[in-house]
């Protein structure tokens, strides 16, 4: 036994002999559902946002450094690739924010009925799309 957590995989039959518990089926066995897909997306967007903080740090450091450094960062963000990154960052942030609120509501013990978590899931998807469109419309008008 290499890993101590293996202990949880071992059980004894009623005659005392040792056997391994069955593993639950892996991810690819299941049909994607709104609940599981959004759960995976929450983690995925969280990891993406962690990478996205590089942009936040670069922006703050540049603002505190010099006009030239700031122009460099602003130029990168304003380039086609930079705008694509910024768009991805905004979608990830808005999704993670809204689905995070959904998680906080669950933590309060609410919204666990099947109909409720399906509705809240789709609400998050729709609100993410709507808020992203609004943010970019306002942003592009302001720019």
């Amino acid at each position: 036994m290499q890993d101590a957590r293996e202990a949880l995989m071992v059980q004894r039959r009623s005659d005392g002999t040792v056997t391994r518990r069955p593993l639950s089926p892996h991810l690819q066995v299941y049909r994607p559902q709104i609940t599981s897909v959004l759960s995976v997306l929450h983690r995925g967007t969280g990891i993406a946002l962690a990478a996205g903080t590089l942009l936040l740090v670069a922006w703050l450091v540049a603002a505190a450094s010099s006009p030239a450094a700031y122009r460099g960062v602003a130029g990168f963000v304003g380039s086609p690739f930079g705008l694509l990154l910024l768009f991805g960052w905004s979608v990830a942030l808005i999704y993670h924010l809204l689905n995070g609120i959904r998680h906080l509501v669950w933590d309060a013990g609410l919204g666990f009925e099947k109909g409720e978590y399906h509705r809240s899931g789709w609400a998050v998807v729709i609100a993410t799309g709507a808020l992203t469109v609004v943010v970019w419309l306002v942003g592009l008008i302001a720019w």
């Binding site: 505190a64 700031y70 122009r71 808005i94 924010l97 995070g100 306002v138 302001a142």
Partner: peptide, 25 residues
């Protein structure tokens, strides 16, 4: 804490879109 802070930040960077270093600073 990040719910209001993120919304404030999104609004702020929209307002700062196209600004130069002096304005951002």
């Amino acid at each position: 804490a990040l719910v209001p802070l993120s919304l404030w930040f999104i609004g702020s960077i929209i307002a700062l879109a196209g600004a130069d270093q002096a304005a951002a600073a």
